[in-house]
Simulated assay, not measured.
Amino acid sequence: MRGRKPTPTRLKLVAGNPGKRPINGAEPQPTADLPTCPAHLNPSAKAEWKRLARDLNRIGLLTMVDRAALAAYCQSYGRWVEAERKLKETPILLKMPSGYIQHSPWLTIANKERELMARYMAELGLTPSSRSRLAVDVSATDPAIAAVWAQFDM
């Protein structure tokens, strides 16, 4: 697949369809119920889930089928937090028995998880730049979007 990833219809509607391109009237509409937090997440990941899930669901950016994407972000967040805690307890550079100096494995883990988090944050609208494309009035989100969808006989 070439070019940019298509913008989800929900995000187009929330942003006011700035490109004025046709709205996909046949896009599947998953259940808007708030997904439950997966039990396998570590404690820091569960705390991040609780912090984000309700607000994302309220503005229509989190549905039942998005559960895995948010869980993956939260788990990366939890691992990043754990790696950062370990980095506070251990030096960043370690001297190996052979005499070589190398980075702490915790630094490698923290950096990798931060990269993964950044990808998920962009997908979920959790960065300042991805949010800047949205114009959301949380109190009016559902009726406004419902009215727009009604135009397309959905």
Rank of each mutant, 00 (worst) to 15 (best):
G125C: 10
R119E: 15
D55L: 06
K50D: 13
V136F: 01
P38T: 05
E48T: 03
T90P: 00
E84A: 07
G78S: 02
M117N: 04
I101G: 04
K46H: 07
T7G: 09
H40W: 15
L126Y: 08
N17K: 06
L107R: 00
A122N: 13
S98C: 05
C37F: 01
N57K: 02
P30F: 10
G16Y: 06
E48Q: 13
T141W: 01
L94M: 09
A32Y: 06
P6D: 06
T141L: 06
P105H: 14
A15H: 11
L56Y: 09
G99A: 02
S44L: 08
K95N: 08
T127F: 00
A47N: 10
L62M: 05
L41W: 08
A72N: 13
R10G: 06
Y120P: 04
L34K: 04
L11R: 15
G25W: 13
R133D: 14
E89C: 03
V14D: 08
I109T: 12
E115S: 14
K95I: 05
N42Y: 05
L107S: 02
P22M: 11
Q102E: 12
S139A: 14
R10V: 14
A83L: 06
I92Y: 02
M121N: 08
L107N: 02
L41N: 11
L134V: 12
P128N: 08
V14Q: 03
H40K: 13
R79F: 11
K12P: 06
V136N: 04
G19K: 15
E113D: 11
E82F: 00
M117C: 13
G25F: 12
T9Q: 15
C74K: 07
L124T: 04
S44K: 08
P128I: 09
G25Y: 11
L94Y: 00
A140V: 05
A72P: 03
Y100L: 12
L134S: 06
A53Y: 05
G25A: 15
A39L: 07
N57T: 08
P22H: 12
A68T: 13
P91I: 04
A15E: 12
T127V: 06
N17G: 03
P43Y: 08
S129K: 15
Y77V: 05
T7L: 12
P38V: 07
R114A: 12
G125D: 08
L62C: 02
E27K: 11
A122Y: 05
S130C: 10
N17S: 06
V81S: 04
S139I: 07
P30D: 01
T127G: 08
D33S: 07
V138D: 10
L87W: 09
M121P: 02
T7R: 08
T31P: 07
A15Y: 09
P28G: 12
R133S: 13
L87I: 07
L70T: 04
L116K: 06
S98D: 14
M64Q: 10
L107I: 01
K12G: 00
L94T: 02
K12H: 05
L87P: 03
G25T: 14
E113H: 13
I101P: 04
L93S: 12
P28K: 15
K95R: 15
T141P: 01
K46D: 03
D55I: 00
G60L: 10
T63R: 10
G99I: 04
Y100G: 15
T31S: 14
A68F: 10
W49V: 03
T36N: 00
N17R: 02
A69E: 15
L70H: 02
E84Y: 07
G19N: 14
A26T: 14
S104L: 04
Q75I: 00
A118L: 00
